[in-house]
Write a protein that binds this DNA or RNA. Structure first.
Lengths: 222, 222
DNA sequence: TGCGATCCTAAACGTCTGTATGATCCGCTC
DNA sequence: GAGCGGATCATACAGACGTTTAGGATCGCA
């Protein structure tokens, strides 16, 4: 039970959140104070483990990590997150980091890498950029997820036909390709358009592009 | 030395090239030797200015920069290249760089940032990655350039119709939209397909996507 | 065993597309 | 002024598309 309920009046679930992981409580407090002063929600943790206990809310957010965490290093934790398919923009801070560390972090997609002591404004700028990046990737992910949801309602046959349709083949060619009557392809095609919510063929083509549907990288068919 | 013609038999213009800029001739020679030992073409320069005199060949390549160049810093030079629309993967090396420099370089798209002394293998790995990245972006650029060439042969009216067609509108809707007879739209449409070399509507739609063509609501660029 | 989902097909009809053929008009260039 | 590319439109026709109506077949599951 997370007994936190700061603003009961507002839904609040749409506001960005900044997560902070640092074993130094004074750092946590300083950062929390900084972010709250600009109206950002903050959740601070003393270790990576504590952070992982949390169920991440579906709002734009970012993670501020000290390179030197209690058990695992910040870099390793960043890699862990990626492996666990947890995508959140990371901002590193360090008191005594080196260049190879920095390179590794940035290559792994870190938004920024700040050296202590840093200026408050630099941190805020980094957080703003990170939140914005997360907002965009969440938007994209949502669109994609909706598409996948629709695509999941297609039967195997319909998916197969969709791939061929969006390739540009005519109904009769598709029919010949998979050994059906042309009329049957038309029926499937109609179902596909309705289920996917496509208002036109170009619409469907763009959906297929986003879904990564092609003749080669499609679904293995029976 | 422009008199280089190592392999007269082969065209050679397809081989990747590594450009090196360092004011220390011993570094230039060491790197040149290293890269040649693995079969890479190398061109070394003592200053950024010299490098800019060169007309860059259209082959996969990358640029190795010392952060501390004679006049401008490596970072500034990287920014200059971007501003001059010269896109080439950059690998930095430095004897005494700091973290902010590293962050700036990586944010600006550097492939790697090596601290001297570095292991030969690390440099070779970075160069391999950089060349590969450049190869990919050149491939994409070529496809896009070919498309733009085709698109340039369209008349203004045809471009307008193409935008509407790929949006998913029917001929009669397009006709109403721009005040034409449906038959005229069909004619334009036929010309578009022929000029663009599209074998099907999905084909044309994908071209339009790459070209960033939409009804003023295309892809946000830059 | 019956129901529903999936898959297949046919006939029919209306709409949309694509491509001719032929023609007029405009603006520009040689 | 003749020629040319661009744009426009009409008529006509063949082919492609999409939907409806009306079946029949298989399979898994309640």
């Amino acid at each position: 039970m997370t007994g936190r309920q700061a603003s009961p009046s507002l839904a609040g679930a749409e506001d960005p959140i900044v997560f902070v992981i640092d074993d130094d409580s004074s750092v946590r407090e300083a950062l929390s104070s900084l972010f709250r002063s600009v109206g950002l929600r903050v959740e601070a943790f003393g270790s990576a483990h504590e952070f992982l206990q949390l169920k991440l809310p579906n709002v734009p957010s970012c993670l501020i990590l000290d390179i030197r965490l209690p058990r695992v290093s910040g870099l390793d934790f960043q890699a862990e997150l990626a492996k666990a398919d947890i995508h959140i923009p990371v901002i590193f801070m360090t008191g005594h980091g080196d260049i190879p560390m920095t390179v590794r972090a940035m290559k792994a997609g870190a938004v920024d890498f700040l050296t202590k002591p840093f200026r408050d404004q630099d941190m805020l700028d980094a957080v703003t950029a990170a939140i914005e990046r997360d907002r965009n990737s969440r938007d994209e992910a949502k669109v994609l997820s909706n598409l996948h949801e629709l695509f999941a309602t297609l039967t195997p046959r319909e998916r197969q036909v969709m791939a061929l349709v969006t390739t540009g083949l005519m109904n009769k060619q598709i029919a010949a390709e998979i050994g059906l009557a042309e009329i049957t392809v038309k029926i499937h095609r109609g179902h596909i358009m309705r289920k996917m919510g496509a208002k036109s063929l170009p619409d469907l083509v763009r959906m297929a592009e986003l879904l990564g549907i092609g003749p080669a990288s499609g679904q293995p068919q029976t």
